[in-house]
Design a protein around this nucleic acid. Structure first.
Length: 571
RNA sequence: GGUCUCAUAGCUCAGUUGGAUAGAGCACCGGUUUUCUAAACCGUAGGUCGCAGGUUCGAAUCCUGCUGGGACUACCA
């Protein structure tokens, strides 16, 4: 890497000019701002104590040494305390020559690090919506990015298939369903079950209202409405293994899985393993017992089990209800154990919304207090909520953007496919940590920083390469060309792909890839307008430009693959 | 009440371990096509980086306080 070479030269310069040892790894280089001449910039302010000279003089001293002693360096210029270094053209031409047909440029070497990425993790009581779509696309992409960093990556999906919320839709179906099925209603399974979840909520709200009209307090009404009591009873029957209850549960979940399957296919996501909360909560209960014996948890008089996290700045947290049934975190404790038994990964990533920040802090603390070896490796990839121009998504107000509606038409016409993939890009380009605004109209734009613009750029390049199929551009005689500014910029950008993959992996942010690939596409468009390619009369220059085309196309294709987006050969 | 998080152009977003004159896209206005795909390119305009202090050669970035949004904190998941 040229940066490492430059850092070593700079360290040598300090030694030679000022007789001071500077650790080359401590030297920071940044990319030179476009307004100035140069590739990399070394800021000398921090080193004035060593040089005992003013900034300009220091920068000049170092620059002079570099030009005299480093053949990779062509020239330098100094502005205030900024030493701008120009790397020789030959270096960039060599880089292009040796990488323009490298179909794995930028991908990291094998690290032997194993990473498990959990994402999607739906509830089986309603269909997927826009928020889930962000989750799925993020999870898939982050897994791909980590693979590109050389890690051994597995993906899993933890299905929340049990609990009080599931019992709610079951109850409504038992009471009001008249045996309705996806086949009899013609509804997609997950949507059908979702319908009964909404129906439950409606009945429940009415009951609460009625109780309050009788003069009961809101709190009393919410806890004693017949529907919620019946749902709780259903949950106890389920945990007790009541045959009829379990049968209905199995049937309804089956409908949901069939529905999810269709949606996952459309989204293009896959999982190495599915976990089901119904299988893991018992293990969670066991571990809670284990914690009680170890004294990490305590039991209240009513039989409920808690952990005291006040010493860590948090609160007391419930781990097991008084009636013995488990809560959300109970099964997560079990799942964490199971994941480690199955995969033994050093890192276990949970792609889950930031509304659960507290939950994961607690989960990790619990694992630490149980001295679990995997506690340190737990990482919550917390992403922001998706908002709509009209405000929040609220299922009861019908403002939810359904996942199936959003990606509909994905496999129909080419134009619709482009639009659907454009939405993927739209959802991935924002930093995961931040909440994002989803504007349905902007999501299908095709100008500027959009998926279609980048796909179009790729198709254009491919068109040129098809037209050049009879030209052999394997070897360029670099003595017969001079680099155009636009050519230089593209080569420099291509060079950075390797660093970008590292950045994206470290930040676990597909947005880093999006912004970079957009930068590349934009830069190519400029180059395309400024530099004739097939019409270039200088044969060597033409070959060089074709190499640039080839490498740029690779980067767009490879970068988009990390996002889960295909690029077309023609448009 | 407690914890966390966010605030950058009219809108949506970038901005690396603190570095030069804070950048893109959309929208607006103007220009470019007998020429490799115009879903393109070039240009104009648009800013108290929420407010006030502090740290330092230097702060959108780090620290403190304030204002304003959001989330979590339930025997919901």
């Amino acid at each position: 890497m040229i940066q490492e070479i430059l850092k070593n030269h700079i360290a040598n310069a300090f030694k030679s000019v000022y007789q001071i040892d500077v650790d080359s790894q401590s030297i920071a280089l940044e990319n030179t701002k476009p307004d100035f001449e140069g590739d990399y910039t070394f800021v000398v302010f921090a080193y004035l104590k060593i040089s005992k000279k003013n900034p300009e003089q220091t920068a000049n001293d170092i620059g002079t040494y570099l030009v005299e002693n480093a053949r990779e360096i062509q020239s330098f210029n100094v502005i205030k305390g900024f030493l701008n270094i120009v790397v020789s053209e030959v270096y960039w031409l060599d880089f292009l020559q040796s990488n323009y047909q490298n179909t794995c440029y930028g991908l990291g070497a094998k690290t032997n690090q194993k990473i498990l990425v959990e994402y999607s993790s739906p509830n089986t009581n309603k269909p997927l919506h826009l928020g889930h779509v962000r989750n799925n696309l993020l999870g898939f992409s982050v897994a791909e990015i980590l693979k590109a960093n050389g890690h051994e990556v597995y993906t899993c999906n933890l299905v929340n298939d049990r609990g009080i919320h599931i019992c709610k839709s079951m109850l409504a179906w038992i009471q009001q369903g008249n045996g309705e099925t996806p086949a009899s209603s013609g509804m997609k399974g997950d949507h059908l079950v979702g319908k009964y979840y909404v129906a439950f909520d409606k009945t429940y709200k009415e009951e609460v209202k009625a109780l309050m009209a009788e003069g009961k307090s809101e709190e009393y009404a919410e806890k004693n409405a017949p529907s919620i009591l019946a749902a709780q009873q259903l949950l106890q029957k389920w945990e007790a293994g009541d045959e009829e209850t379990v049968g209905i549960w199995r049937t309804m979940n089956g409908w949901v899985y069939e529905g999810f399957d269709v949606t996952y296919k459309k989204l293009g996501v896959k999982f190495d393993k599915f976990y089901y909360e119904s299988n893991t909560y018992l293990l969670g209960k066991e571990i809670v017992q284990e914690g009680l014996e170890k004294g990490a948890f305590y039991k209240k008089e009513d039989g409920s089990v808690w952990i005291d996290l006040t010493a860590d700045g948090l609160d007391h947290k419930l781990l097991l209800r008084g009636d013995g049934t488990s809560v959300y975190i109970t099964q997560d404790i079990g799942t964490a154990e199971l994941k480690y038994e199955d995969f033994a990964c050093e890192r276990s990533i949970y792609v889950v919304g930031n509304e659960q920040d507290y939950h994961f802090k607690v989960l990790q603390l619990i694992c630490k207090k149980l001295y679990k070896s995997y506690a340190e490796g737990i990482y919550h990839l917390s992403y922001g909520m998706v908002e709509l121009p009209h405000g929040k998504m609220k299922s009861r107000e019908g403002t939810v953007v359904d996942a199936d509606d959003l990606i509909d038409g994905m496999l129909q016409t080419a134009e619709e496919t482009t639009k659907a993939l454009g939405k993927t890009y739209f959802l991935l380009k924002v930093d995961p940590k931040k909440k994002m605004m989803f504007n349905p109209e902007e999501s299908i734009d095709f100008q500027g920083n959009t998926g279609p613009f980048i796909q179009y750029t790729h198709a254009r390049i491919k068109s040129i390469l098809r037209n050049a199929s009879s030209i052999d551009f394997e070897n360029v005689n670099s003595s017969k060309i001079s680099l155009h500014k636009a050519e230089k910029e593209l080569i420099f950008l291509a060079f950075q792909y390797a660093e970008v993959i590292k950045d994206a992996g470290r930040e676990m942010s597909p947005g880093v890839i999006c912004n970079y690939v957009y930068e590349v596409a934009k830069s190519f468009s400029s180059f395309y307008h400024e530099c004739p390619i097939l019409k270039e009369s200088n044969e060597e220059q033409k070959k060089l430009r074709l190499q640039i085309c080839n490498m740029t196309a690779y980067i767009i294709k490879s970068g988009f693959a990390l996002l889960g987006i295909q690029v077309p050969e023609r448009m």
